[in-house]
Design a protein around this nucleic acid. Structure first.
Lengths: 191, 191
DNA sequence: CGAGGCCTTGACCGCGGTCAATGCCCGTGG
DNA sequence: CCACGGGCATTGACCGCGGTCAAGGCCTCG
């Protein structure tokens, strides 16, 4: 199974699709690479593309007055995109690759147009959005309901990859605390 | 234009749909009324229905150890639902009507099944989810990036209805602060 | 008129933020 | 091979915002 069908298969059961439908989808995909530090999506800009990570890692953040707040991190088999861009608006966030990465590039305009007539494409997009919505709800829940410590241990148990691959400086604002507080909190755990 | 088509029209251009398609959608709708205090959706339960408010108001909150955190408020022409229920999971939230209300009841199971074959229904649902996702992103942004005062004045300017129709006790946790802090903050503005 | 709901106000204090210094690891160049 | 510098994490000192607890005011409704 190649990378393209693997990607599609995350959201649709490719076994149930005929070849024509799969081809329709892959039409809007191509391959791209990024270097560590590349920022394909930038705050206040419009972009037409989203990216699926085959190999690599990225973060998303918004910034105001030299203050950055990280909103999510993406790794293999996850999507890097601006939902605002998808909705035809300027992005609120900037995305930056944390490692050299290989990606599938997705043409948002074309795929959205295709969704108007193709129910397979329509469902494909809906599933992606639903996954993101679920992530947002979960995140919102934790931010409102958990103490800092609890938020960290949640990550520790459920997304250990974050701690291994993401600098703590970025992780801190993602968890809604200062870098120093995160550091102290880790010290307490290490006892 | 009746209430049903008005509802559909919020997400699709009914003028562009033929009668058969509209009928397909309205199949899954019916009318229901609620009394102030009714809670049709409850934390940890599965429910098959969502509600569109024709007239009335509702809130959604999650609770833990006698502590409640309000997550959203809905008024006329907005939807009361649990996204987790829609995804086949137990609801994380409870929804409660704040006023006697008239609603359109939506059968989630049936409409989801219909979406598999009807592209119109599929798009209808996608639009609803997209609207909700946009709301979540906006809310997350404010919670992470704004001070309490700024969050309140944002509401004041963009959603004044909240302040008029929702008890401040509920609004406080929605804004991520204690009732007392919200009260002091209002006092400062009133100077 | 009394009770209860809701909002406000006051006093206190602790969590976590800021600022600043130090430690540690690693890549680079002399 | 060692020395230096930069990036990142840690630790300490300080302090203020906002939370908690408690009391008081002000409605509405029975």
């Amino acid at each position: 199974m190649n990378e393209l069908t693997q990607f599609i298969n995350r959201y649709l059961h490719t076994a149930q699709l005929d070849e024509r439908e799969i081809n329709t989808l892959t039409n809007y995909f191509s391959f791209t690479n990024f270097k560590k530090g590349d920022r394909p999506i930038r705050q206040t800009y419009h972009h037409d593309f989203a990216y699926y990570i085959i190999q690599g890692a990225a973060r998303s953040y918004y910034s105001k007055d030299h203050l950055e707040v990280n909103t999510w991190f993406a790794f293999e088999q996850e999507i890097v995109a601006s939902f605002q861009n998808y909705r035809g608006k300027a992005s609120m966030e900037t995305t930056e690759f944390l490692e050299d990465s290989q990606c599938i590039k997705i043409d948002l305009h074309k795929i959205a147009k295709q969704a108007e007539t193709s129910n397979v494409t329509n469902t494909f997009m809906r599933r992606i959005i639903e996954e993101y919505t679920e992530f947002l709800e979960e995140r919102l829940y934790r931010l409102q309901f958990s103490e800092g410590m609890e938020r960290y241990t949640y990550i520790l148990q459920n997304e250990p990859e974050l701690i291994q691959r993401v600098p703590l400086t970025f992780l801190a604002s993602y968890l809604g605390m200062s870098r120093e507080t995160l550091s102290r909190l880790r010290a307490r755990i290490a006892l």
